[in-house]
Simulated scan of single mutants.
Amino acid sequence: MKTEQFYTEYKPLMFSLAYRMLGSVTDAEDIVQDAFLTLYKSGSDHIQNMKAYLCKIVTNGCLGLLRSTSKQRENYIGTWLPEPLVITASEETDPMQSYLQKESVSTAYLLLLQQLSYLERAVFLLREVMQYDYQEIADIVGKSSANCRQIFHRAKRSLYVKDDPDHLDRFDQEQTANLVEQFMQALASGDATRIVKLLSADAVLVADGGGKVRAQLQPLHGPMPISHLTSNFLKKLPGNVTYRLTMVNGLPGIVVYLDGKTLTVLSFSILDGHIANLYFVINPDKLTHVV
């Protein structure tokens, strides 16, 4: 099998792993491209397990990037959110996008993963998502199988203490899409009263401007403060504001454009028929891939 065939078969899986590890679409794409470039240069005749081989390159590439950029994350201005994974109209029939929509890539889930150490995240994903046994994981990350078992259980306990990852991915597609569409209409009209009705009593808004644009630096709690902020969000903007309801990180979300350029991407988590969390990615560096 040629490298092009391996690329077609394994790229969705490798991107899914890298994106979960990094929370960055652009960095994940770079890591995956580098992995297949390495494969192209080395050839495939000596490789017995192609999936494991690519997973090892991608995992180590992600770990190396995370360690080299850890200082940047520590000094990040405001709240960090993952780069949004947005589906365009032309990508709706793309096999990779179809694969990712079935995976656990919601913003809330990615934020939970980011709370794990780099190694915990790698071991957890290789076990939980890739379904590798502990010896295979040990070969990939360079630890003993017993150590990998301990790391996995520690990571899983940590996630379940913070929340139930499975719960984050259980949602009613039609209900969620309806709530998000109502929110989009209320946002467009600046209807604060309507926004309040859509939010849960303990709703939280998180915005990521990265210090590049003006944004709420700390999470905002409660329906009234959130409705006030969001209903006034677009009123002060010069130019033509338009909206697109689409899939963001596997769930219904919104892309907002100002004069045809991407201004922000909104994703949500829904609980008991109300919007529980709102995630605004406004940092322009995280929106370069969104059209």
Rank of each mutant, 00 (worst) to 15 (best):
V206N: 10
L278I: 13
G142T: 05
C62N: 00
N277K: 10
A89I: 06
D285G: 05
A203G: 03
L266Q: 14
D139Q: 07
S106D: 14
Q135S: 12
E181V: 07
L229Y: 15
T288W: 00
Q72K: 09
K261P: 02
E83L: 00
Y7I: 00
Q182A: 14
T69M: 04
L205F: 08
S145R: 11
N283V: 02
L179E: 08
R194D: 10
S42R: 10
V241G: 02
T79W: 05
D172G: 14
D94A: 04
P238A: 07
K197T: 13
C148K: 01
S98V: 04
D27Q: 14
S24T: 06
T242M: 08
M224S: 06
L205W: 08
M96N: 04
L271G: 05
S98P: 00
F152V: 05
E74L: 04
M14F: 01
D172E: 15
F183D: 15
S189I: 02
F268Q: 06
A207G: 04
D285A: 08
L237V: 09
K143D: 07
V248W: 14
L159I: 12
I195W: 06
Q216L: 14
L245N: 11
R194K: 07
K235G: 12
K56W: 00
A108I: 10
L39T: 00
L245W: 11
